[in-house]
Design a protein around this nucleic acid. Structure first.
Lengths: 217, 217, 217, 217
DNA sequence: CATGAATGAGTGTTCATTCAT
DNA sequence: CATGAATGAACACTCATTCAT
């Protein structure tokens, strides 16, 4: 696998695949169209990848390493939770701008079902799930996070908001849906990141007792 | 084999369609398989629906009215924001339990692109978008919601969390993903609703000045 | 066969069938559309006719008797050949005006092949073939027709011209083809009949020796 | 199974198509059967032709060029009208012997209706219509043709007789019909050509005044 | 007995995969 | 070794015919 292909060709092929899978889904994407877009013949595709599924897996792995790279700088940094969240949001926003079709492909992947869904979810989500959970648990231990919530839920809701953010950037359906919330005044990405942070900040820090205090005042 | 379709049969056909579109997507679902699952022949499908697209639209409308019915009781009620949110969450949770394939079909729909995506998003999301935005703006005016955030973002993040909740209940991929956050102790739906409410409560009410106060103490 | 149907209904059904077979051919015509046009249900069609083929045969027989009736008056008349020909042409022209779809159906029938073609040709053409041949042979014997030609060929060419005349009146393709010959000055039916008679008259009467005479002059 | 279609294969495919369209009509012919007869797979058909209609058009064009080639030698020759007619008849007779299914396909085409009929008639008939009309008008001007008839009608009747000749050679229905005129003594093609020429010769040359002269004698 | 809904085999067309060149 | 033409199974959709009502 991958004998004579230059790295640039390999990249081109995988990007063509990602774009196709993103646009039409695993089933809808056509191998011939992918080959054409990548300026190669279908024969090459089948020389380096056993079948459509195998090629799809390669596209996924390729995309995952790009994503991991994009997050590496942020996750390596030791930071306060909120700054960490801001970093993640920023990094994902950049990734969305640079590789919208990757995000669209991830979204297509989420339509999988059965064991395939399980396998894909683990391959794609395990890293961030562990990362966020660990980081948030740590933050809670450090007192940077409210204590009255299970950190696993926090991590989960946090990631949920991030996924939706990405889809809302990249996927036509979610973009159209976001437009319904925007109303007349369209949002720019910076504004979105800012507001999401505000939303998270309060969810992160506020505790029920505060309400009592405030009400008491 | 006799006379017009009974309402139950029509329901059965639409449910079979929804299940198929949920599982395989609009393109991947096969009319023959749908007919088989609904215990009818393909001819019937094409007697009542002009083509696959028309049948899909009927499935969608059928599902949307079920969803609207499920939300009607909650949205009619005048309530405090948090109780309102609790009601929505509860209603959606019930809907997920009763009609998981409907949610899976919605999720498949979100893979649409182009004008089709726009049209579908408006058909599906416009109601809730307007509902949530109006309710939240009103709550802000009443003082039940923090003032330092654009209510539109609030509604948007709120709906984002709800969508992910539904997908995490019904779609295999999101279920597997959720399992990664659950770790060893699986969550039950009640716990999930409770925690989400806590998350929302703080995000709804806390304002930045409070932090200063707390920090000052 | 034909129990409770009124004659008017029967006529209506057969005319609907003829129109459909004329327009779309035996294969292309749909039984449901025929039933709809005849304001009956498909069940009735299949009650009175075993299957499509049987119904088609009934349409054909119905049409043939209409045609025979139209020709009866002319063929019964004892007449000079040319006047006889004029009568036939006139009668067929009238028939074309009154029942264009019958002619179109005949034309469709001529696309049959194999034994079916033979059977149909015999059913449809035998009468006129015998009629024309006999009449022309008689005319030849009487001295009303040139002697240097086999009367069978005469009858054949005569009928060929008549068939084309009918098709050129009724069938879209042949009408368009005729328009190519018309050029700017469209022909009216009377003119056509007149010219065809002139054409036939000369073909009927002229003998090679005459040419010599004319040339000699 | 390798490389591009050879010219022979392409010919084979088109001939298979022509045979199928000839036998069953545009609608009745099945692409799968055509592919089987041409010893190829359906995929090939759809690689070279966009759809059934496109393939049909290709068959028609293929056939039309064969026909034009067959007529080219005759129409190029400057000749007396009758010799010209004899040449055409001979050429068409040869074409019928070599390509009977082409003629059968033309006949199927004549069942078209509406704009399609117009378009096809123009594509197929325009050349000969112009050719015959021009030639006959010229002959009339030269004095080789009777003056008392509109040359357009002449051309039209001439072509009508030729079309019927071809159909009578190639199409089962018309062959069966011709057999009814033949009686016990079947005609051979030479005889047919000969008699048709005689028929035409008289129609071409004789004028009404001659009759008077003959009658006067 | 009339109705027309239901059936399901058959058609045009696409596309993953193979393999001759 | 690369190419892309050829394969053929699969799918949307139609329509002659049946038969429950």
């Amino acid at each position: 696998m991958g004998k004579k292909l230059t790295e640039a060709q390999r990249e081109q092929i995988l990007e063509a695949g990602i774009a196709a899978f993103a646009e039409h889904g695993l089933h809808g994407a056509g191998m011939a169209a992918i080959a054409r877009d990548a300026h190669i013949s279908v024969g090459v595709l089948y020389k380096y990848y056993a079948d459509k599924e195998d090629f799809f897996q390669a596209c996924l792995r390729h995309s995952l390493s790009a994503l991991e790279e994009a997050l590496a700088a942020v996750t390596a940094r030791e930071d306060k939770l909120l700054r960490y969240a801001a970093g993640i949001i920023r990094a994902l926003g950049d990734f969305c701008r640079d590789h919208p079709s990757h995000i669209r492909m991830y979204h297509q992947i989420t339509t999988a079902s059965g064991d395939r869904a399980r396998a894909l979810a683990e391959e794609i989500e395990a890293v961030t799930a562990r990362l966020y959970t660990a980081y948030i648990a740590e933050a809670q231990a450090q007192g940077d996070l409210r204590r009255d919530m299970d950190p696993r839920f926090f991590a989960f809701f946090f990631d949920n908001l991030l996924m939706m953010l990405q889809f809302s950037c990249c996927c036509d359906y979610y973009r159209a849906r976001m437009a319904l919330y925007e109303g007349e005044g369209p949002w720019n990405p910076e504004r979105m990141e800012e507001e999401l942070l505000k939303f998270l900040e309060s969810a992160f820090t506020w505790e029920r007792t505060d309400i009592v205090h405030r009400d008491e005042r």
